[in-house]
Design a protein around this nucleic acid. Sequence first.
DNA 1: AGCATAAACGAACAATTGTTCGAATGCTAC
DNA 2: GTAGCATTCGAACAATTGTTCGTTTATGCT
Lengths: 192, 192
Amino acid sequence: MESKAVTESRRGKLLSFYRKNRRMPNITEMMDLFGLSSRSSAFYASERLIEEGYANKDRTGKLVPAPGLFRVPLLGHIRAGFAAPAEEELADTVTIGDYLIDDPNASYLLQVEGDSMQDAGIQSGDMVVFERSQRFKPGDIVVALTEDGYTLKYLRKKGQTFFLEAANDRYPDIHPKEGEILGRVTSTFRKY
Amino acid sequence: MESKAVTESRRGKLLSFYRKNRRMPNITEMMDLFGLSSRSSAFYASERLIEEGYANKDRTGKLVPAPGLFRVPLLGHIRAGFAAPAEEELADTVTIGDYLIDDPNASYLLQVEGDSMQDAGIQSGDMVVFERSQRFKPGDIVVALTEDGYTLKYLRKKGQTFFLEAANDRYPDIHPKEGEILGRVTSTFRKY
DNA sequence: AGCATAAACGAACAATTGTTCGAATGCTAC
DNA sequence: GTAGCATTCGAACAATTGTTCGTTTATGCT
């Protein structure tokens, strides 16, 4: 029984279709996509894909992507400087966009220039997602709008007063005015 | 004419529907979604959304998300340590998942543990996307599978020999054997 | 061989699909 | 007001939708 392999190959075609058309195929399109010549065969095939966790169906019967479809293999953990074993078998599911942005309506992007947050692992050119809100606490990396423009800094607290500290010794602290802090950095990403 | 505002509010509803159902609504569903009582009104509304760049239509007439639907406002650039002006008006389009992964079939995730790449802005806990291929060059951050497990290192070249260098002075260089280098790091991301 | 199961097929079903049309309603500017 | 435009409505169209059924072909196992 090579059914597993067939279904796996169809997962690839399904994923390609989804990436190209930004929607899942309907039964007729699956027929073409899989090279079948009967719509009922495609219907049968779709049920296999659902069994494998690659897709789901609406209450209306429409095909919808399941998390498994986007699966990017998570190989394991890189331990310390001197590496450690990792379970190649283990595959976990991460949909990166949704993972990085919790509240799409309050989230904004900033591209970082300069080295003020270098010691916090944020380099020049990195993209920063920040959530516009007043719910931040000491230790958070915050986006502040000072008279000079946007800044990225650690929020610190000394006694009752907040101040902004760069993650780079070469920059002095800043004491922000009321309402200058726009939000909290929730994630960052970088492309090489 | 407040059409712009109405359409903008419908974009929100459309985006919510899409995030919830992982597909775009059909005409009937749009009717319910927008509180209209005629399918032809929803059809008309859909054409407005297409005009605004929030959606598109297949050759089959099905609604498909356009890049504008996922738009995350890009506020501007944070310059140097001492901030710089940024055009709040400017909004650019980034679909993060697609942006970070070029070749979905050859890409894998690793979660970093340890501080060996700290000076390269990769911290413990960061997620690393790497592309499994032999096309890498000196200066790339590569994933190597040594006898101790996975390691993340800079690929360097001295004369004719390659070696692996950590972005942290406390770790020594490694001279990898043939075929030990699995691939090249193409992007990283981190969530706070 | 023979049996059992899996997969594909073609025909048919009612329901839903995107779309068009003409008529009504609302709104803004004169 | 009235003229013009944008929007909504309800009805109707042919085409496509997901699904079911009974039958046929392929595959694996003993």
